[in-house]
Design a protein around this nucleic acid. Structure first.
Lengths: 137, 137, 137, 137
DNA sequence: GTGGTCTAGACCACT
DNA sequence: GTGGTCTAGACCACG
């Protein structure tokens, strides 16, 4: 499982793991129902303390991203209901606003902003495509 | 000075102040060279300790957003050079990727994200316009 | 950890700590990657408040001299890139000019300044050597 | 009187004036016994408050650099005795040591350090020469 | 037990 | 009255 974590970053390691796994699932690298690495395996894989990975998995379960089943393992959830959808959409909005503030201080024009957005969008779509072909084909 | 800070949020209060002021300046509510509230005034205004505001102002100075002058007050900087431009542009890219991850869990399509992006962009442009008319007209 | 701070000096204590640690690292007393004293330990050691040391450490992190890691401790950075190299080299020049001014008022000749410079340089090289032998041998 | 002061710098304005005048005298731009600008003149010249210049002149008098004579004006002192010579020589030494620390973080070699020193030395000697010819010839 | 934040209140240097 | 520093002590999040 490819996943990079850096203890020196400001974001705590357990959140780096959370974000990393969420991103991989969102990209389609892990399909709903599929079995993930065990806590111990992942901990060994990325050279991180067992407790840190355990905390990350608990957080992922709290967000309904994965399901921890005693004695069986960890599985990617099947998306059904979306908890706190309105709150979270508001946060997304805030994040975008904050992003514009940063862009302003980098003296990016509206044009630049648009291009950056499109670039990342394209890159994302391609990786989704790739994973669809690999798993779904 | 309108500025809301919430001690219950995860982001520390001094950073909320930093972000709030950066946003106001980016929107043109405060013009370069203009004098901001004093540390004590702002602290009283938003019911926060003097030191917390001082820390926020020092962080803003570090980012070249404002200038703290002993015995005189605090002034909005004139934007000139942009330190760490490359690093920070990379962070902007990362931020966009995170939106897509979040959007996936909100079952928003790429289209939805794009519309949200445009919405915030429009709202931003309007507020910029408004401030330009007020100060520059 | 030998480090003297004097509250009576004009330079604030947190900066005395910053300078002291920078000097020790520059001399090779602390090697890259090595763990420093914790904030609380150093504070107790030099009889200074926790917050003062914390401020010093944060300033050192800002200058890429050390790395603060949540819940783990503080580590000496591995030197890589040098931010603001041009600006800071200019400051070095300014500093030398100030020596000559001061020397003039101490009625020291250019020759005297040069000798003083050499003296300090030699002393510096010796201490570097000593630390290299101790750690690298 | 050419003298640049910047309120945004960390060094207080009155000290910038002090240092500037000391440098000019050390370079020989002002000769011992010569009459300096009045406080009011200098204040007007460099667009600074009267009190700030007054404070600078008082500091200069305290250091025996100039002499304020009631109703007559301000004159460059004739260097005679050197107060605190030992202490100040120690401070100069400290300054040089601190300078090496900075140079280390800029990854300057001993060679670089030497060249920088020589460069500034040459530039200084030339300017001294120039002033000697102008005033002393 | 690590660093990070916040408060309350004091004192200092600068303009 | 401006910003800057320092203390003492508390609480939190992280590993």
């Amino acid at each position: 499982m490819w996943l990079k974590v850096d203890p020196r970053l400001n974001t705590p390691m357990y959140l780096q793991i959370v974000n990393g796994i969420k991103e991989q699932i969102a990209r389609g690298i892990w399909q709903p129902g599929q079995r993930l690495l065990t806590v111990r395996e992942l901990a060994a894989d990325i050279s991180v303390n067992y407790n840190t990975v355990a905390k990350a998995y608990q957080e992922l379960e709290r967000e309904n991203v994965i399901e921890l089943i005693q004695g069986r393992g960890t599985y990617v959830s099947v998306l059904t209901e979306i908890p706190n959808a309105i709150v979270r959409k508001g946060e997304l909005r805030e994040a975008i606003k904050k992003w514009f503030v940063e862009a302003h201080y980098l003296q990016l024009s509206k044009q630049d902003v648009f291009e950056l957005f499109n670039e990342v969008l394209c890159e994302w779509c391609k990786s989704e495509e790739a994973n669809r072909n690999e798993f779904g084909g």
